[in-house]
């Protein structure tokens, strides 16, 4: 079946089998391996991407379901102005160790901040409760997202250019 998906702002189109999962379409067909393939059962959240701006677990979405929609992966977070504040926050606050959960964490965080630019710790913990991290104990991830909330995009870009 022919599908056309807007991935990180670019139109991607091609023939896919209906049973192809979105995570494999992104990783194997498009080569965007930043989306991690984890538990395959919609538990771990490593495969989280944004579908029309909303976090979804791409192991449990068919590629054909994304036809005509917009997908944002971790590769789409940074812009020509530099890193997304969420990415910068994960660097500043050591929000990762092995990095496996990080792309999904960051996309969930981005969607949270788009909805709620100044979330408290409880709100952050609730928002990322579908993204499992087995390294950090979440402390630094929560700090990283708080850092991003305190440094909106314009500020991060300004610091990067200094």
């Amino acid at each position: 079946m022919r599908i056309s998906v807007r991935v990180n702002g670019d139109e991607a189109s091609g023939d896919v089998e209906p049973r192809l999962l979105l995570v494999h379409y992104l990783r194997q067909t498009l080569g965007l391996t930043g989306t991690h393939w984890g538990c395959d059962t919609s538990n771990c959240g490593a495969c989280t991407v944004l579908l029309d701006g909303v976090p979804v677990k791409s192991c449990t979405v068919l590629a054909v379901m994304a036809d005509g929609h917009a997908v944002t992966t971790v590769e789409g977070l940074a812009t020509s102005d530099g890193l997304d504040p969420v990415q910068e926050g994960f660097m500043q606050e050591h929000g990762l160790q092995c990095g496996f959960c990080t792309p999904g964490m960051m996309l969930t965080a981005r969607a949270l901040l788009d909805r709620d630019p100044d979330p408290d710790e409880a709100t952050i913990r609730e928002a990322i409760s579908g993204n499992l991290c087995r390294c950090t104990g979440y402390e630094n991830i929560v700090r990283a997202i708080r850092w991003a909330a305190g440094h909106p995009a314009a500020e991060v870009a300004k610091e990067a250019s200094l």
């Binding site: 919609s42 959240g45 976090p55 979804v56 449990t60 979405v61 969930t108 409760s129 579908g130």
Partner: peptide, 9 residues
């Protein structure tokens, strides 16, 4: 019920 990301779907 599940988690916030699953609840989006």
């Amino acid at each position: 019920i599940a988690d916030p990301i699953v609840r989006n779907r």
